[in-house]
Design a binder for these strands. Structure first.
Lengths: 231, 231
DNA sequence: GCCCTTGATCTGTGATCACACTTGATTTGA
DNA sequence: TCAAATCAAGTGTGATCACAGATCAAGGGC
């Protein structure tokens, strides 16, 4: 066989893969509400395909805990509870913190430049487009995680993002409207620490970054419960 | 509706679920070799069903990284590499260690008794039935992990076991034949530490327990490579 | 003799249909 | 009037068929 230089393998993508990616994007972006029920046929109609790719994509999302299946066989995005919030936050601090620490030791100038570029893009359009903001936040974090060199941790982190997406939806919009977005500061802290190869500081900044929307969510949930008690 | 007392919900299980469970059992038990190629129709024939439940079960296992899909769309169990061994071991120490520490703080006498019973069963038939041994080892660990109170960590640990199953296959049989099975000692250490509520010691004993087969595997892989160099 | 082409076979993928079950509104009964 | 029974629409699940791509062996050309 002749050596084809410089050509990346193309790899046909199936309909199922596209459906899966689309649902993932929607989940992480908070387009689905906690507790919302999804049906295969309805999604198939919306995505202009048959039920087959959709049901396989949903099955995959269910095993990732991104969706849950009720005894009635109904499929829904898991509702928000205080226990789930704390559980997810703890897991994310544990695993993403470790990935961040690992990445700190393997940073190249190329990575740093790429991160800086994402941060620049992000600052340019702060507050204008929420979904674009979500995309850039995702890109920033996973550019780092991919550098950690672990093919085991990364899919787990993706699963965690999938699970927290619907929960942090409320927080995303609240922060975006308030404009008081100190995510930029945390991201700069992370970048600076990574540049210095300081794993501990990078991890601490990440924990702060992750914790913020969850803390907001916990407050909001407590306030809602109190309001319900005394209407 | 009248209140039906004392009846547990039955919850119909689908063919897909049975196929999925069966494949999981086989994977964790090391019945499949690293690198082995699986085909949908062949598995469907072996399991006496159609291709439909099998392909959905395989899809789920692929998203869990328990199986991988090649650019040719072939499905196989991931081959063993040194990097993968170290990657998996690190992740298991991180996540299972955390679950163990959490469980140490939530142990009830009921849990302790259950663990002791499993350990007793295990000692009774040490070395006689390999697959029974695998089952009891699985039961022991997950009895603990279930007690950690995290619905997020447990599926991740299951995914990790699914991924390490085929790798540790060699180690399982080697230890079983050698009879020099000090897993019993580690398990006793874990139980004792849990009883005392000593999270740090429990975690350390777990790390020793997990690391053992991986260390054996690394040695074996190195020896095989050296043997190949000088035939 | 060696390499390329061709062919049959097997693979995963997608679409469609049949079925059992759930669910919600309607109708029937007292 | 209210509750129970009934019917119809909609759900996920499984089986079957059609199809494009991959694989590998035998055949044909240089």
């Amino acid at each position: 066989m002749t050596e084809a230089v410089g050509l990346a393998p193309v790899g046909r993508d199936t309909v199922q893969d596209r459906v899966y990616s689309e649902l993932r994007r929607a989940l992480i972006g908070g387009l689905f509400s906690p507790g919302q029920v999804l049906t295969i046929r309805q999604l198939a109609d919306a995505l202009l395909t048959s039920t087959m790719p959709v049901r396989e994509a949903l099955g995959r999302l269910i095993t990732e805990q991104a969706l849950e299946i009720l005894p009635n066989r109904q499929i829904r995005v898991p509702p928000v509870t205080l226990a789930r919030i704390e559980d997810l936050l703890r897991a994310r601090i544990l695993i993403e913190g470790e990935a961040m620490a690992l990445a700190a030791a393997r940073m190249t100038p190329r990575h740093i430049a790429s991160l800086r570029a994402i941060l620049l893009d992000w600052e340019e359009m702060r507050g204008t487009q929420v979904d674009r903001e979500v995309t850039l936040n995702h890109a920033f974090h996973f550019e780092i995680y991919r550098a950690c060199g672990s093919t085991v941790l990364i899919p787990m982190i993706e699963s965690l993002w999938l699970q927290s997406g619907p929960l942090t939806r409320a927080a995303i919009y609240a922060f975006s409207e308030a404009g008081a977005n100190d995510a930029a500061r945390f991201h700069h802290d992370i970048l600076q620490a990574l540049q210095a190869g300081d794993a501990a500081t990078a991890r601490a900044a990440l924990v702060a970054d992750i914790s913020r929307p969850f803390a907001y969510l916990k407050d909001k949930l407590g306030a809602d419960a109190a309001e319900k008690e005394t209407p």
